[in-house]
Structures are given as structure tokens and as C-alpha cells.
């Protein structure tokens, strides 16, 4: 009897552990795909509708570099962010620079950009680029088995958030960036080159997006239309989070990731998705400037 009880406990513990891991993974992937968008929105007030395509190009950069013989980790952690970051700089220069402060125009322009990049990717890369399989082995938890790569994604997401926070909070670059965003005129009168700050910020946002695209590529695969699957979710996460980059998007990711994963686990996947959207609707209704709009006005 005691033995059976122990077994039952063990089974429950396994289930609990694996469920927690799923939830953390859900949070981490949501947090990763949203961060770049959050930086560009939070700091520049630009809604980048081509965000999904930035993710897609990050994924393509990663698999193309890898198949060209570049080391997988270099391709993922350096190559893809660099390529998408540079793309971000070009986009900022050619399109966004003329549209600062006009949020609606940027929606239209970046929507156009999204269509363009989708078409361009289908011409350049097509639908048949061979992907990269998820590295690392598996982890056994009782009856269950989970990829170590999921744990890698969770750890990486945490690391990326922490380092972004540290850069913004403690470095000169972060200080200048925050100052320029809060009061461009003042910053520029103090000798800060505003245009340069915008470009660097856009580069950083795009690079983080490229990183996220590369990290998810081994799991999700990449096709020119991959971006469509991400855009709505990351958009909703960022806006619901509010204007503070780290806290807002972080909290929103935790909330949405938990709600959608738990609901999906307990009921059906479709209700998981619905729960995410419903939570967003209710949050926005009662915190009309996003989660952090009220409480973290000057936070990060």
C-alpha cells in the first residue's frame, strides 16, 4: 500500500514537473518572439508589422548559414541577429525615419514591408530549404521525455531579458537610449545624436527578433509565410504589456504563456488559444494603457 502511494506521488510529481516545463517553455517562446517588437514599440513608438517577417528572415539566415557550413551556434547567436539587425538598419533609414511620431503611417508602411519581404523570401529562399534538427538529447522525467532544447530556450529567454535589462539600466548606451525616448529635444540639446540612437535602437530590436527566429527555427521550421503565425501573438503580448519594454512584455508573456498552456493542457488546444486572446481583451479593458501603463510609468 505504501509502495503504491509512493508510486502515485511519483507519477503526480512527474506530471507536475513536465507540466511546469511546458508552461515555462510557452512563456519563454512568447517572451522571445515579442522582445524585439517591444523594444521597437516601447522606445520608438513604431509598430513594426513586418515583425513576423523579421522572425522568418532570422530563421532563414540561421538555416542558410548552417547549411553553408557555419557552426550552428555562431549562426544562431551571432549570424542571424547580425543579418536581421542590418536589415533593421536599412528599413529604419529608408522607411521608418520619415515616419517617426506617425504611428498609423508606420502601420501601413510596415504592413507593405511585410508583404514585400514575404514575396522576396519566396523568390530568394523558396519553400524547400532544409532545416536544422533540434540539438541536445532528451531528459527523462518518469514516464515522460522532454527535449533538452526546450530547457535551452527557457534559459536563453531568461538570459536575453536579463542582459537587455542590464544594458538599458546600467550602461551609457542604455541611459542615452532612455533619455532620447523620454525627451528627444532635451537629449539632442545635450549633444546626443538622435538619429544615431534611433538607428541603434532599431538595430537592437531587429537583432533580438532575428535571434528569436533562429532559436525557434529548429523546432518550427521556416517557410516564407512563417511570420504570419507569430505576428498577432507577439503584437498582442507587446501592446498588452504596455510601453515598458522589459517589465511589460515580461509580465504579459508570463501571464499569457501560463493561461494558454494551462488551458490547453486542461482542455483543448483551441481553448488555450482562446484563453490567451480573452485574457488580452479583459486586461486591456481594465488596464487601458497596458499592464505597466499605470504602475511602472518610468520603469523599463
Amino acid at each position: 500500500m505504501a509502495l503504491v502511494l509512493h508510486d502515485m506521488n511519483g507519477l503526480l510529481m512527474d506530471l507536475l514537473a513536465i507540466t511546469l516545463l511546458e508552461i515555462f517553455y510557452g512563456i519563454a517562446s512568447l517572451a522571445l518572439i515579442s522582445l524585439g517588437l517591444a523594444i521597437i514599440f516601447g522606445m520608438l513608438r513604431v509598430i513594426n508589422f513586418a515583425h513576423g517577417e523579421f522572425l522568418m528572415i532570422g530563421g532563414f539566415s540561421f538555416i542558410m548559414l548552417t547549411s553553408a557550413g557555419v557552426n550552428m551556434w555562431i549562426a544562431m547567436l551571432i549570424g542571424a541577429p547580425l543579418i536581421v539587425g542590418l536589415l533593421g538598419i536599412v528599413v529604419e533609414r529608408v522607411v521608418i525615419r520619415n515616419l517617426y511620431g506617425r504611428i498609423v503611417e508606420t502601420i501601413l508602411a510596415t504592413w507593405g514591408l511585410s508583404l514585400f519581404l514575404m514575396g522576396a523570401a519566396s523568390l530568394l529562399f523558396g519553400y524547400f530549404q532544409r532545416g536544422v534538427s533540434p540539438p541536445f538529447g532528451t531528459l527523462k522525467i518518469g514516464n515522460y521525455q522532454e527535449g533538452v532544447y526546450s530547457i535551452f530556450v527557457i534559459v536563453l529567454a531568461a538570459a536575453v531579458y536579463l542582459s537587455t535589462y542590464l544594458v538599458l539600466r546600467y550602461t551609457k548606451l542604455g541611459l542615452i537610449a532612455r533619455a532620447t525616448m523620454q525627451n528627444p529635444e532635451m537629449a539632442s540639446s545635450l549633444g546626443v545624436a538622435r538619429e544615431k540612437v534611433y538607428a541603434v535602437t532599431f538595430f537592437c530590436g531587429a537583432a533580438l527578433t532575428g535571434l528569436a527566429g533562429a532559436v525557434l527555427a529548429p523546432i518550427a521550421g521556416v517557410v516564407p509565410t512563417s511570420g504570419l503565425a507569430y505576428i498577432a501573438r507577439s503584437f498582442i503580448t507587446v501592446i498588452t504589456g504596455g510601453a515598458t519594454v522589459i517589465a511589460g512584455t515580461g509580465i504579459a508573456s508570463v501571464l499569457f504563456g501560463t493561461v494558454s498552456q494551462l488551458t490547453a493542457i486542461l482542455t483543448r488546444p483551441v481553448w488555450g488559444e482562446a484563453a490567451l486572446l480573452l485574457t488580452a481583451v479583459i486586461l486591456l479593458r481594465f488596464l487601458p494603457a497596458g499592464i505597466t501603463g499605470r504602475y511602472f510609468r518610468n520603469g523599463l
Binding site: E22, A229, R268, V270
Partner: peptide, 20 residues
């Protein structure tokens, strides 16, 4: 039998259920 909306991309929980 499990059904997924067309934009669902998270299958971890399902894979766990299959494992058990």
C-alpha cells in the same frame, strides 16, 4: 483524438499525453 487550430504551434502538452 486531439484537434489543433490552424495557427497552433505548441504541441508539448500533447506529446506528453501521448507519452503517457
Amino acid at each position: 483524438a486531439e484537434f489543433f487550430p490552424l495557427d497552433a504551434s505548441s504541441f508539448g502538452a500533447t506529446i506528453n499525453r501521448i507519452q503517457s
